[in-house]
Amino acid sequence: MTTGYLTTHVLDTARGLPGAGIKIALYRVSGNSHRKIAEAVTNEDGRTDSPILPAGKMKAGQYELIFFCGAYIDANGLSTDEIKFLDQIPIRFGVTDEAAHYHVPLLLSPYGYSTYRGS
């Protein structure tokens, strides 16, 4: 059994606050195939209540997190544009160590974002 797991969080860098209430979907990617394996919504701290991929479920391979940020951007008055510059943000990443903790955060503003492998 693997012991690795995946966590994430969202930080609203435009307001300097956690990104609360953002839906996140996690997919396992194999070639052109995407299979949804988890879904969560960020809490008041901008984190999911538990790992989005818990211990025992991590397998080496490609994954994709999709952050559904459009509604959050609208609700917080971060953009008045009818067509949002950022709506859904996909982050594809690889897992090589099934026993490791992977942390993939999203630093979000209405017109840009960044990510990194955290701890």
Rank of each mutant, 00 (worst) to 15 (best):
S33V: 12
K36N: 09
K36H: 08
I37W: 11
A38C: 09
E39R: 07
E39K: 05
A40N: 02
A40P: 06
V41W: 07
N43V: 07
N43Y: 04
E44C: 08
G46V: 05
R47D: 04
T48Y: 01
D49I: 14
S50F: 11
P51E: 13
I52Y: 00
P54R: 11
G56N: 03
G56H: 05
K57V: 03
M58A: 12
M58K: 04
A60L: 11
A60Y: 03
A60H: 05
G61S: 02
G61V: 12
Q62P: 00
Q62N: 09
Q62T: 03
Y63E: 01
E64C: 15
E64R: 12
L65R: 00
L65P: 00
L65E: 04
I66E: 00
I66R: 01
F68Y: 15
F68I: 06
C69S: 07
C69G: 00
G70K: 05
G70S: 11
A71D: 06
A75E: 14
N76Y: 05
G77T: 05
G77R: 03
G77I: 10
G77C: 08
T80A: 14
T80I: 12
E82L: 12
E82C: 05
I83W: 02
K84F: 10
F85D: 08
F85E: 12
L86W: 08
L86Y: 04
I89H: 04
P90F: 14
R92E: 10
G94L: 07
G94V: 13
V95T: 06
V95D: 02
D97Y: 03
A99M: 14
A99S: 14
A99L: 14
A100R: 04
H101Y: 11
H101V: 11
Y102C: 04
Y102A: 09
H103C: 13
H103R: 02
H103P: 01
V104A: 02
P105M: 06
L106R: 00
L106W: 01
